[in-house]
Simulated scan of single mutants.
Amino acid sequence: MSHQVLIKKAVKKYGDFVALNGVDLEMNPGEFFTLLGPSGCGKTTLLRMIAGFNSVDGGEIYFDDKLLNHMEAHKRGIGMVFQNYAIFPHLTVEENVAYGLKAKKVPKAEIERRVDEALDLVQIKKLKNRKPNELSGGQQQRVALARAFVIEPSVLLMDEPLSNLDAKLRVQMRTVIKKLQRRLGITTIYVTHDQEEALAISDRIAVMKDGNVMQVGTPEQIYKKPENTFVAGFIGVSNFIDCKVEGENGDQSALTIGEDYTVSVGLKKSFKGKGIISARPEQLFFDQSKGLKGTVVISTFLGDFIEYEIELENGQILQLNEYTKDSETLKKDGETVYVNFKPDAVNVYDAETMEVISC
C-alpha cells in the first residue's frame, strides 16, 4: 500500500545556513513526484529528511497520519536508490537484490520468488549470477532499482539515480523507471537537477530554490505557466523581454516593447509599471512587417528545427526555433527580420516582484 507523504513547514539548518526554509508539500499515494532545482537548493536535504538520514529541525513529516520526525530510518518502510548505486561489490546480482529480504527474515522460498520477479521486471534475470564489476552502468542501476522495490516499500526515494549514466542511457533508464513506477503504483519521490528528465518522468514537480518551493505543478503547468521568472528561466529556455504594462481593468492590458510596438495581453488584475515578457523559443515566429526588429546573428540547423540567434535593435539577444516543416528557406546571418509572438501564449511578470501577472 502506498502512502501519502505530507511535509509541513519543514526546516533544516546547518549552523547559520538555512537549507530548508519552512517547506510545505503534499505527495499523493502512488504519485511520481519530483524535487527539481539547482545544486544547493535543498532538494536532497529534504529527501534525506523523509528517509530519516537527516534530523528535522522544524516542522513535521508524515506518511499518511503517522508522524515520522523521530522514527528510525529502517522503520519507515522506504526503498532508496542512490546516485552511486550503492550495491555490494562482493555479492552477485541475485544476492544484492535478496539482501533486504534476508534482513527482514523473509522465508527462503519467498525470497527466491520475489527476487526472480524483481529481476524479470528490470530485465536482467539472465545476469543474476554476475558480480557488479561484470555489469555496465545501466545494468548496475537496474540492480539498485530491483533491490529497492523488491522489499515492497510504501515510498520509494530516488536521489539523482541517472546522473552517472551517459546521455542516451539516461533517456532509456528514465523510461524504465517510469514504466516500473506505474506498474507497481509506489509513491515515488525523485530528486534531480535535470529539467528535461523531470518533465519526462514526473506526475508533478516541485521547483526549489534556496530552500524554498517556487512552484508545484504538472510538467505541462510548470513549462507553460511558470509562476515566476526563476521557474521560467530554469525550466527549458526562455527569452525575457522588457516592457511597459498599462491596464486598468485587469482583463486586457497594453504591453509596450521598445518605442512603439504594442500588444494586448490579459492580466489577472489591473497593473501599471515595468513588466517582463517570457517567451519560449518555439513561441516566437518571423513576421513579414511587424514585431520586434532584429538581425540574424547565427542559425543552427538541428534536423527537425532551426535554432536562430537574433539581436534586437536594443542589443538584446533572442532565441527563436522554427520547425523545418514550416520553413521554406534558411535565413542568412546578417539578415534583417521581424520577430513576433502570440500574446496569449506568453507569460508576463511584474519586473519588481518577478511574479506572474498574466492570465
Rank of each mutant, 00 (worst) to 15 (best):
L292Q: 12
G250D: 15
K105T: 06
G303M: 07
N347Q: 14
G22W: 13
I306K: 01
S2T: 14
I276G: 10
K8P: 02
Q316D: 10
E282T: 05
E197D: 15
N96C: 06
E227G: 15
T256M: 07
I222A: 12
Q319S: 04
N340V: 03
N212A: 05
Y349K: 05
A345E: 03
T192Y: 04
V339F: 00
E355R: 07
S39I: 10
G15Y: 04
R142Q: 05
A254P: 01
Y349C: 04
K131T: 07
L91M: 11
L127E: 07
L330M: 10
A167E: 11
S2W: 10
T353C: 03
T329C: 01
R147K: 09
E282P: 01
H74K: 13
D159W: 12
K66Q: 13
P132H: 14
P226A: 09
N21I: 03
G15C: 08
I310V: 06
F33K: 08
N164V: 02
I124Y: 09
L20S: 01
V23E: 15
V171F: 09
S253G: 15
A118Q: 03
G15W: 04
V176I: 09
Q139A: 11
L302D: 03
R174L: 00
V337R: 00
T192A: 05
E352S: 06
N164F: 04
K108I: 13
L320R: 01
E60W: 00
K105L: 07
F149N: 06
V97L: 05
F240R: 02
G294M: 01
R204I: 09
S39A: 12
H3G: 03
Q288H: 11
E313L: 04
T353Y: 09
G217E: 06
Q181W: 04
V18N: 12
P161M: 11
A103C: 13
I310F: 00
E227M: 14
R182F: 02
L68N: 08
R170I: 10
N314L: 03
D116W: 11
A19F: 06
V337A: 00
G59Q: 09
K179E: 14
P89M: 09
D64I: 08
V296C: 04
A109M: 06
G79I: 14
P89T: 13
G250S: 04
F301H: 12
E95V: 01
L267N: 11
E220C: 01
I78A: 15
E328N: 03
L36Q: 12
D194S: 11
E355G: 02
L101N: 11
K12S: 04
T188V: 02
E352A: 09
E220I: 05
M27R: 10
F17K: 14
Y14T: 11
L20P: 02
A198V: 12
H90I: 07
T295K: 10
L121N: 08
G266R: 01
I50K: 06
Q252W: 04
S327R: 01
Y349S: 02
M214G: 11
K126L: 05
T218Y: 07
N54R: 03
E309L: 06
K13S: 10
